[in-house]
Design a protein around this nucleic acid. Structure first.
Lengths: 202, 202, 202, 202
DNA sequence: ACTAGCGGGACGCCCCGTTCCT
DNA sequence: AGGAACGGGGCGTCCCGCTAGT
């Protein structure tokens, strides 16, 4: 019984992962269920057993895969950090390293989906909005925490700066994806670091 | 002869404009030729007379419509401006006003196309890259001009700052499109203005 | 499970049969998938589930329908016949009767396809060639058998005569189709019979 | 005035010739007006000035090009021949040589059109029938002439034999086109000669 | 007589997401 | 969970006619 559950879970996870990859590469609308199945060794029956339709898979990818990525990259590290300015710079640098190592720069999965779908579909809008807000909020809290810890200057507007930082990161990733130019990533990383240091106490 | 030419040009322009709108709303891959035709009063024969396929229309939209938008919004104003910092802030503010007035915020047409297609198609990659570089270069030149005119601080790295500004603008527009929240636009506008003022002499 | 298989087989068979008819009437290039579907009660999905494209259907029609017709009309009767000359005449007569009874004489399905497609497409060339060779070979073997049985004159060149007979049959059917004149069929049948009798011992 | 007429005639002739070629290669239904124009250096205007539509061109190709071929190859030589049996064999041999020398064996233009169109279109049926009848009649008359001249055996049924010969020729050309095998042509030529000799007096 | 270009529709093939039945 | 069937478009192509000019 338990093993059956596990197999089913496993199948669902495979679909979720393959769905994420297909959507990441092609975009949601152009993603095809057939291609997702080719990425696994599963059949259509399996797909529609776990998800009533493609849209629901897209929502699940956001809820379970992409949100988790944001949590792993930003929420968790910042929740335990005593120096949010350095942590943000380091985590961004890690992301830059990862993207620069890829054969093709596909940009930010969250932003890709958000740009494509948020104006077309309420469910995508709500989910991508929520995740972006989680991200901005994480930055804002970390900056507030940094003020209390005496790391961040007291006159920094936490909320607006969180927004500014997320916008800057997404903007740089967008430009780097478009130009396929690694130097854009490096320049963005440097400028971001400079900006972050300008927020530091003394 | 001339009148025929003019009528034909007109038809082509209609297709280009309708194509731009359809692509702006749905994205390039989901844009359908039938829908483009519905937006005009033309038929398939007219479309495929002027464009051999949908891809070529997409390229023409970039080359003739979207690049022109960047020129009108940034290249032209900055070429005659004596204070690039104010001009950038004002032009961005104009764009923000425009987007906030729309029933749906569809974001930046250039960035939408770039994010969707640059990893999938060489022609889109080249064109969107080129236009972004034009944009960044325009900012960089304007900043250099500002230094000579004594408006911009001499220690401002023109090229990196141009990139930073474009990234910031695209990042803010992306977030605003995703969240459908006009306050994101306002906050982004304010923060951008603050940042621009930090580059001013004295 | 078995019933599913049977239903699927059934659908495929329906498509094959309807495809044969449509191709028989219009020719392969002018045959339309929509018309094939109208001849069944199936939809496009069913078609493209069983055949990746129209060409593959055409090949299958040759391999499974038309070759079978040649086997039924010529290979099987001649394999059990002790008098090939009479059997050929009788089977041809049967074919003539069938064609004369049709509202429109559409000629020989094999020859139609062969004439239309063999110069344009390798796959059609190979298949129609193979089936014609099977046909000629069947005649040649039967004539050789007839020699051994003492029915056919020993000086008859089996292979060349097989070719001659098939050519004659196809030629007569072609002329009859063109002229829509049943008397051509009758005349051809009579002449063929005379020719066959001229091959008989004594 | 006359020169204008001649130019016009010339254009029409070019279209007729290019139309013949295109139809010969692709078949009538698959022949495209655009391709015909590519084969000339003419434009659509010229085409539709001379022919109201593709069908009319097809009819003209039959009436003016293909019928002429039959006249040149069979009617004329046999009208002046004193030995129809040899003339038929020789003319067939010439045709065989011509076809064997082509890069692709496209068969008999008349038979191709007849097989494709005679069941679908009354005009094609009438024209191809008429030309075939002309051909058969030419043979029949020549055989009758041969009887009077003492070359052909008196017991040869002229009409049925004319039909038989045309059928045999078309059948051999069909098989040769299908198999792309020059030995079929040679074998057919030999067998035809043998058959023709069997009709000779003494 | 003919050019040149434009536009109108209809339709072809193919593919997609989805449903239904086992 | 498997896989056959469904029906709706998608893009591209074709044939044809029109207008204006030479």
């Amino acid at each position: 019984m338990e093993s059956v559950r596990r197999v089913a879970e496993n199948t669902r996870t495979k679909l979720l992962q393959a769905g994420f990859e297909e959507i990441y590469v092609r975009g949601f609308q152009a993603a095809s269920v057939s291609n997702i199945l080719k990425r696994t060794s599963l059949t259509r029956g399996a797909f529609f057993h776990h998800f009533p339709d493609k849209q629901t898979l897209g929502y699940a990818v956001l809820d379970e895969v992409i949100e988790e990525m944001i949590r792993v990259q930003w929420v968790v590290p910042l929740s335990t950090s005593t120096d949010p300015l350095s942590t943000i710079a380091e985590e961004f640098e890690k992301g830059v390293q990862y993207l620069a190592a890829q054969p093709v720069n596909l940009g930010c999965p969250l932003n890709n989906l958000a740009q494509e779908m948020s104006a077309l579909d309420q469910g995508f809008h709500e989910r991508t909005s929520r995740i972006f807000e989680l991200w901005v909020e994480t930055y804002a809290s970390a900056l507030e925490g940094g003020k209390i810890a005496g790391v961040v200057r007291a006159d920094v507007p936490a909320s607006a700066t969180g927004l500014f930082l997320v916008a800057q990161i997404e903007g740089v990733l967008s430009l780097a994806k478009t130009t396929r130019d690694a130097s854009v990533l490096r320049s963005g990383s440097t400028t971001l670091k400079t900006f972050l240091e300008s927020l530091r106490c003394e």
